[in-house]
Design a protein around this nucleic acid. Structure first.
Lengths: 342, 342
DNA sequence: CAATCGCTTGGTAGCGCTGTCAATATCGGT
DNA sequence: ACCGATATTGACAGCGCTACCAAGCGATTG
């Protein structure tokens, strides 16, 4: 026969209730919905809890209430600056709230994403923040039946699972090319790495802009599945020059590639922007202080994280955002590397 | 009187046990210690669990067993590349294991760190990974009484709380200065930002090396509490040149500052390394592909994360690492930016 | 004055799992 | 065939909290 498993020093809700002279359930209510208590009891429970240094047992709460206060976050990469900015926004918003974060790394694999999703959902998260709109059919189906707030971040699409915050990568790339065209550049190359769905859409935007201007030439495109890096930017740019020596500008799908291309230009004593204009994407901090300064497309990553977290919290608190789809936009930042031609 | 709160569709351990024709406790053991079952029952429980798609309820497990399978990770910054590499190592190691990660951002504040530590510890984590050796006295005291594995990462110190993995920032900085001295540079400046404890120790290493060489001059040091950035690197370097126009080299406490200094040199048409040698710290990826390539001190951040997580797991599994303190070392990577003088 | 209403408070049972110990099955040795 | 030792299995209670219902209570109403 099992004996009593008493935990000696531990302060439980019952202790707090006893000291406060109320029933455990009343003490419990104090932590969940203090307004439901009379002022007197509220004060008594509060001071009792403080005096005993009571800390609720989250496992017990989760078990009894059948829900947790964990918000699951699925991102494709931990090292990409883009996601660390988003993450920072999420953490900044959730920090100090009752919610905590469960973070997982899909490594750009939607299969991995599906696996992690099942893992998360099994523990009944309070909310979910997932990256992008390209989930497996199963993932989508699962998420559509789950009844917790879900925010898709990083990009916009026609059929949100629940809520959505991001911007149009297609439009952003198109605007970047529009800028280069307006500056007088004509033979604009494209450098892409990783080629995840969002990068793919930037390529689509490039293609559309160039086609509209009757300047599209597939020879001017160099892409790879390899993860991005500054070094890779240099390599891809060299490849591009080999394929299309006559280009006068290059659009890079991210700033690391742009920086790599810039260094490669320097190595070849190729003047930027006189002989080669460069435009990046994301507008990381260093773009403004390179020599020459590098043009880019600014995206609002930190705000995306903040808003995504805020949308989840608001929904959980019953104040569902009036607009479930938020376009954070972008802006083309024009710097020396794409100064007007001639 | 309370009525049955039955959860209709949910698969519990009891269902699995019934289908497998064993008692619930035997099924429970299958998930915790399969070797304790006979081969027959093991197979039966396994297939029953698979057939029903059983997923254990972690909250119930945590409540019943009085412990969790969460490893708490406290790092000072989410955006700093250095920490994202470490994090990646931790996630890569813990991914696929039974353990999950609870990540929190101390924002370089040891008070914040203490607060988060109390928060974590209240939920009885399986293990803890904390950054550095400069905790508040209270934090230290708390951690010393807790009985879960704790790994301090990023740097080494004389009195580990439990386990420790990192390298000597003092020695690493000293080695970098030693390299510059060996290359023939004499008036070596120092650029520091953020000035957290580890950066402080790099400054100590710089001071020691310069003093040993009888070349120390406080005029050659520029530091700020502002968080680091490439732009800041340019600004600080300009400040340094204003204070000490005769320097022939600069040691930057991280690679972002080094890159900023490089750009500032370019802006001033100052040849690197002929007129100004530059050495950074951490050896981020871009250092190898800048123009000129930038020397740096390579640190093993990813390995640090991997090992820290592995040390926690090993301890939890009863295979405590024989050596609780691991020095991962560093290496000075000599590139164009610090080529031999003259 | 009884009936009704809304607010606050309490009682009871149970969330799904595992720690502890007891019971049983198995096995080798004599 | 008997004994003790070891390997498996099971029973029971309880981890700490909250959902649900009911009861108490004063105020309002016809």
């Amino acid at each position: 026969m099992a004996r009593k498993r008493i935990t000696p020093g531990k302060i439980r809700l019952a202790e707090v209730a006893k000291l406060a002279g109320v029933s455990p359930i009343t003490a419990s209510r104090f932590f969940r919905n203090p307004d439901a208590l009379s002022a007197g009891k509220r004060a008594r429970v509060e001071s009792a809890a403080k005096e005993l240094g009571y800390v609720p047992n989250l496992a017990a709460r989760a078990l009894a209430s059948q829900r947790t206060e964990v918000i699951g976050v699925l991102i494709p990469s931990l090292t990409n600056n883009v996601f660390s900015d988003v993450l920072r926004g999420i953490y900044d918003t959730l920090d100090g709230s009752r919610y905590s974060i469960q973070l997982a790394n899909t490594r750009y694999s939607i299969l991995q994403e599906e696996r992690l999703l099942r893992l998360f959902l099994a523990q009944k998260p309070a909310g979910l923040i997932v990256t992008g709109i390209n989930q497996t059919a199963d993932s989508r189906a699962i998420m559509e039946t789950v009844d917790c707030p879900i925010v898709q971040i990083m990009e916009l699409g026609p059929t949100p699972i629940d809520m959505m915050i991001g911007f149009s990568h297609f439009d952003a790339a198109k605007a970047a090319i529009g800028h280069l065209l307006a500056q007088g550049y004509r033979r604009i190359g494209f450098l892409g790495a990783r080629m995840d769905p969002r990068v793919q859409r930037r390529l689509d935007g490039y293609r559309a802009a160039m086609t509209d201007a009757a300047l599209f030439d597939p020879q001017n495109i160099v892409t790879t599945a390899i993860p991005t890096s500054v070094t890779l930017g240099g390599t891809l740019f060299a490849d591009l020059l080999a394929k299309a020596p006559d280009i006068d500008a290059v659009f890079c799908v991210n700033d690391d590639l742009a920086l790599g291309a810039l260094f490669e230009c320097k190595r070849r004593h190729m003047a930027v922007p006189e002989q080669m204009a460069i435009v990046g994407f994301n507008d990381l901090e260093f773009m403004a202080s390179s020599e020459p300064t590098l043009s880019s497309v600014r995206t609002n990553r930190y705000e995306m994280g903040r808003n995504a977290a805020a949308m989840v919290i608001e929904t959980l608190e019953g104040r569902r955002p009036t607009e479930p789809v938020v376009d954070l936009g972008f802006s083309v930042i024009e710097r020396q590397s794409s100064a007007r031609r001639g």
